[in-house]
Write a protein that binds this DNA or RNA. Structure first.
Lengths: 325, 325
DNA sequence: GTAATAGTGTCTTTCAGACAGTATGAC
DNA sequence: GTCATACTGTCTGAAAGACACTATTAC
């Protein structure tokens, strides 16, 4: 039971908001061209009573934000995934940082605040935003590159895959094909697939691969495993939208149904069927009219507020969002 | 970036199986009357390449089991939840163990093996097994005790509850009432509620409460936060049954549909509608007939096996189980 | 035959998903 | 009037949930 030297627990926060109809996250970088990083720091039990309080502390220090909604995502044991070759001779060279990722949701106040450091989430995952139709990069670059990578291992393709999926199966399952839809929740699976295939900058960094000349890495990279944590966060919130009223953490007190729909679409990454969305939101008892109206160009819209009572009425109050037009 | 002294990462495994129609978990205790504990141990990066490999090591050492399916549950920062009063003067007395809980699913081989240490899961959560109807302990003891506890804080009841639910709201939401069903997935929420109300032995231990004379603590207790991890595991697998074919990890190669249903019911904690269950399983493409039959007392049953292909055909292949007869 | 377990056919209600159409503002 | 946005009414098909009924063994 002696102290294990050399283990550090790192807390990392994905602080998410929606600015207009663009999902944003808080990130900062040392220099203009350096990869960005999420607010994070070491957990120190002498100063932080709980893990979550430690995380909230870093959010105040590094982002100037008092967090409201916070949830734990996952604990990663291999922050720098690269395992040095001289592992036998230098066991201390082993990874010794365990990072615990958290998701926090917040509102962007109308003011400027530190808003300069809230960045568009889809800069890091350009293949995840389908609101303008299927992102061109998927067919023009991702799928060809993945299939090339899968083709490298002919022997594996026919070998009985030991507990797991073949490369081609993963590609089909996570990016879709004629039979299978693109499942917007599988954000982490897609990122990990691209990482394994060496198509994101972090993979090149961790495995010390040569930087391929004409193949541009996909999306902006981040330090350590921060983009993996970000992928976990996006996958989690996309799933959670459907059974928990989490969107309202990112909305102002009152809003129109169209605003609500825009924000949901921003996170979900695709458009929704307008009429059905309104029906679900209203018959689901998620919102109630404020009686006020806004004027936004066309016919004035009624404004609504979140109905807190829904939490104590229905077991899983979310926005069962199907796909839409 | 200096090493933080005094932080230890503990890995804890919930190893679950279904023996006949009883869900069991692996646990062991030092003495006959001592609380049991789950397989666990410190994560040591010098010997374990990843967190999960470390966990698998403890499973082999302490349970003699090679684990198949493993998933991470949650990371708890407050294993011994009690915070000493002299916190200011003795900061080293603070909790400094972070436990990462894992869920592993396995088959119980027909042989005896270490099966002596597989124990009925519902010994630890007697209020979670509704297969014989609503457990009597809920109405006879749990709800009266919880309402007494909620009644202690009249002032809180009317105060605006700061980000969160009132005691009465939690009781209704997690144990159900006339309007709200008992939601079988909220296992952790129920355990935490009972903990907060001082109705489980761990709460008395952690807060050094006097042991109430006539109030018997609910269920068997466990060391440290192991029962909390177990509650997390049960909640997680009950949820996951519905969208992932995880039951099959606990079933033999071939089985009858009734056997399958019994095992699902064992985990879900309530009975299912037989005809609908069969329809869902077959039309969902989760199983395929083996062509064999078994003889089990009445009409022989056709045996089935898990259809692996379903993983690559449908996005969320689970057993959308509604309640049943 | 009865008891016990396995399996089929069909009806009803709910609701996701889509259609078309109307209402109220700015200009 | 047109354009733009907000909102309403209704149809359809899939599937969850429940009903009654038939089938094949052991005894």
């Amino acid at each position: 039971m002696a102290d294990k030297p050399g283990i550090e627990i790192n807390l990392t926060a994905v602080i998410m908001a929606v600015e207009g109809d663009r999902p944003v996250i808080f990130a900062s970088s040392q220099g203009k061209e350096r990869p960005a990083g999420l607010p994070s720091g070491p957990f120190d039990p002498v100063h932080h009573r709980t893990l979550e309080l430690g995380l909230r502390g870093f959010a105040v220090d590094q982002a100037g934000l008092e967090l409201g909604y916070v949830e734990q995502l996952y604990t990663f044991g291999d922050r720098g995934r690269h395992v040095p070759e001289d592992i036998e001779t230098h066991p201390d060279a082993l990874p010794h940082v365990v990072s615990i990722g958290y998701l926090a949701l917040t509102r962007i106040a109308g003011e400027v605040q530190t808003s300069a450091s809230f960045r568009d989430l889809y800069r890091y995952f350009p293949w995840e935003d389908w609101r303008g139709g299927k992102p061109a990069v998927i067919d023009s670059f991702i799928l060809p590159a993945l299939h090339r990578w899968a083709g490298c291992v002919e022997e594996e393709k026919h070998a009985p895959v030991r507990r797991g999926l073949s490369r081609e199966e993963r590609i089909a399952l996570y990016f879709g094909n004629e039979d299978l839809l693109f499942d917007e929740e599988k954000v982490l699976e897609r990122y990990e697939l691209l990482y394994d295939a060496g198509l994101v900058a972090e993979a090149i960094r961790d495995r010390r691969l040569p930087i391929s000349s004409e193949v541009p890495p996909l999306g902006e990279s981040m330090v350590f495993d921060h983009r993996r944590i970000l992928a976990t966060a996006l996958g989690r919130i996309r799933a959670k939208l459907k059974y928990r009223p989490v969107v309202f953490e990112m909305l102002p007190e009152s809003f129109t149904l169209t605003e609500l729909q825009r924000k949901v679409e921003a996170i979900a990454g695709h458009h929704l069927h307008k009429q059905n969305f309104r029906r679900l939101v209203e018959t689901g008892g998620l919102v109630e009219p404020t009686g006020q109206q806004t004027t936004t160009g066309g016919r004035p819209a009624a404004t609504f507020r979140f109905r807190r009572e829904v939490l104590t009425e229905r077991p899983a109050p979310g926005l069962r969002l199907g796909r839409g037009t």
